[in-house]
Amino acid sequence: MHALECEQLTKVYRSGIRNKREIRALQEVSIAVESGQIFSLLGPNGAGKTTFVKILLSLTHPTGGRALVLDRPVTESRVRRRVGYLPENHRFPAYLTGEQVMMSFGSLAGVHRSALSGRIDQLLTLVGMQEWRKVKVRKYSKGMMQRLGLAQALVNDPELVFLDEPTDGVDPVGRKEIRDVLRNLREQGKTIFLNSHLLSEVELVSDRVAILDKGKLLKVGTVEELTTTESSYTIGCQGPLPDALRTEADARVLGVTFSAEGVVAHVADPAALNAVIDLLRKHGVLITSVTPQRSTLEESFINLIKREIPS
């Protein structure tokens, strides 16, 4: 089952009365997220990540395309009983205490009063805000606001949670705690949709990742798929490599480089990889391992975005 599904989602912001300016915040984005996954949307500033989430919460109306949340159209307000949301740069009414925020927004989210106080206790403990529950929100630090925001997003025990930059302004220990919270939610079968800049963090928790740039979806896949540069393999070899091998490899232009541990093959497809292996075997080289080369998510992200720039 898909927790959310959208097809050809497009959003064009029009601004300015005299010289109409159009911002194409999303261009025909199609994404489907399986239930029970942590799905991350990555992209540089202004890529359209927040716009995407806002459309799924019906805060913004799409210019084109179709979007379903938990199998219901996003325009149906009732579906949001089962959805949680931590907005980017959220601002709770400053006159409320943390506890009152949870009470008010919990009731608005459709949680029954009788269930609410137990739930609030549990969530404030989870995000480490118990001590601050009686303090007015206007006295909170940025990270505390963020923690309260996360608790608020979970108040209705949602099946699907949208978190827009949840670790923004949170200290390293807090970030680790939030990651643990996310993993925990996944174990309970919840679906989490994450918007983030922090690639190293996304890498740690996400099941699937989508990369968005200038409103266009560049790539979707598992972290593994995105960080595996399919064309590079390290072939571990035992003993020194014969010179004849080197000359033949250069002559046949196999795209092979030699290193201390063995051979690095930059190949177009598995057949080419096997050609390299055949060559090594022909020269009597003892192969100990063949491993695809991994880059960090950050490296592949930057490569992907860079490639897009000329277009």
Binding site: L59, P87, N89, R91, Q152
Partner: peptide, 18 residues
């Protein structure tokens, strides 16, 4: 206007209320 402020309106509209 206070309800419609950026960052606050998101909290309200994302709730199951029209």
């Amino acid at each position: 206007p206070d309800m419609l402020e950026r960052g606050t309106v998101d909290l309200y509209i994302s709730k199951p209320i029209s």
